[in-house]
């Protein structure tokens, strides 16, 4: 175990409260939980990429960071009018 693995586990465990936010409460709270989840997963993936020395995998969090932008905006739009 090295520092990076411990940091990755600590950051990944933040997903537990995020799951609670996403699974319970009003649609607005769930959207906030979804947005926080994408940020946390992006950071955790970067940490695990470095921890396991798999440098080419850095493209995954880069893609997730960009894609989560569209996803959150679509949900916000739906929340505004249709949900």
């Amino acid at each position: 175990m090295n520092w990076w693995l411990w940091a990755g586990i600590a950051v990944a465990s933040c997903l537990i409260p995020c799951a609670d936010m996403c699974l319970r409460g009003s649609p607005e709270r769930r959207l906030v939980g979804l947005e926080m989840t994408s940020i946390i997963i992006t950071l955790a993936m970067v940490i695990f990429t470095i921890a396991f020395e798999r440098i080419p995998f850095i493209d995954l969090p880069l893609t997730l960071a960009i894609m989560s932008f569209g996803g959150a905006l679509v949900f916000a739009r739906f929340l505004e009018h249709h949900l």
Binding site: E28, T42, I58, L62, A65, S68, L73, R77, L79, E80
Partner: peptide, 26 residues
């Protein structure tokens, strides 16, 4: 990683504003 940081920085402000606006409009 630096690029991811700048993307998160930019995205976070836009998505937060869009969400707050959606909550108010709702």
């Amino acid at each position: 990683t630096l690029l991811i940081t700048f993307i998160l920085l930019g995205i976070n402000s836009v998505v937060t504003h869009a969400s707050a606006r959606a909550f108010r409009a709702r």
